[in-house]
């Protein structure tokens, strides 16, 4: 059983929902980014989405855009992201880590080399924002062969037969994008999300995580009632940004993650 499956089943047994925390690799810098990453599981993150920085993150709002550019300026790269994960795995073997990003850095690195090195580094799954089912074979097939889950994005516009196309080769869990928009902007309409998740559940057994626009413990509490997992990204990155000059950046982050976990 994969780490992702184990995590969702263990939570289900305890009647709990999963908290997915997104951080940008290398933000605010490589050293502190690793410290933050290491602290997340003990604060309550059940899964971690580790963002591979990219110069042109088309699905992201200003918060994550800025974090990516700063990470890149500080020397982060795709290889650097994998190295960071290798370090993280020295102390943690239980928390699933999903690498999230855009296709170009992966394509440039080489799909086969990437999936093998990502697996060796300790990744459990991939989310590639700009790789819809029409174009995903090039990465999905080697990824799944290497034992990495290929996590699909389902959005408010994924309706009718489109939903079947999207969930067809999904594994790990489904990532439901709760708004038609970019990260860290508007908030979702909970009734619409609930109705759509109900339709998804009728067609697919995978756990459903909801992300985009979830900022506060209150938002997380509401979403956790209708989904298996809640993803918080921009609000975390924003908190890192706010505390860049604080000597112990981990403390305010932990406080935030503990509050989110408590709420769901």
């Amino acid at each position: 059983m994969s780490r992702i499956q184990k995590t969702f089943e263990a939570l289900k047994d305890k009647n709990q929902k999963a908290l997915n925390i997104f951080v940008t690799a290398g933000y605010p810098d490589a050293t502190r980014s690793l410290e933050i990453l290491k602290s997340l599981p003990s604060s309550g993150a059940d899964l971690i989405e580790l963002g591979i920085p990219f110069t042109d993150p088309m699905a992201d709002g200003p918060t994550i855009q800025d974090s990516s550019l700063q990470a890149l300026e500080n020397g982060m790269s795709l290889q650097g992201t994998l190295d960071m994960l290798t370090e993280f795995r020295k102390d943690n073997t239980g928390t699933p880590v999903i690498l999230m990003g855009y296709f170009n850095p992966i394509y440039k690195y080489g799909c086969d080399k990437f999936v093998n090195n990502a697996k060796t580094a300790g990744a459990d799954g991939l989310i590639v924002v700009d790789l819809p089912p029409e174009e995903d074979e090039e990465l999905r097939i080697p990824a799944q062969k290497a034992g990495l889950d290929f996590i699909k994005l389902v959005t408010p516009t994924t309706i009718g037969t489109r939903l079947d196309t999207v969930i067809k080769n999904a594994s790990g869990f489904l990532y439901y994008v709760s708004i038609a928009g970019i990260t860290g902007t508007k908030s979702a309409n909970i009734d619409e999300v609930a109705a759509h998740i109900k339709q998804i559940k009728e067609k697919c057994d995978l756990p459903v995580a909801v992300g985009f626009g979830i900022k506060t413990p209150e938002d997380a509490a509401k979403m956790s009632k209708i989904a298996d997992a809640v993803v918080v990204g921009s609000a975390i990155v924003e908190n890192i940004n706010k505390n860049q000059s604080v000597s112990n950046i981990v403390a305010p982050l932990s406080e935030q993650v503990i509050a989110l976990k408590k709420a769901i």
């Binding site: 790789l131 994005l153 994008v177």
Partner: peptide, 20 residues
């Protein structure tokens, strides 16, 4: 029919845009 010119082209967009 998938929008490829040899290796190039295609539709590399976020799922939200695909139906559109």
């Amino acid at each position: 029919e998938k929008g490829h010119f040899g290796l190039y082209g295609g539709r590399y967009v976020a799922e939200t845009l695909m139906p559109l």
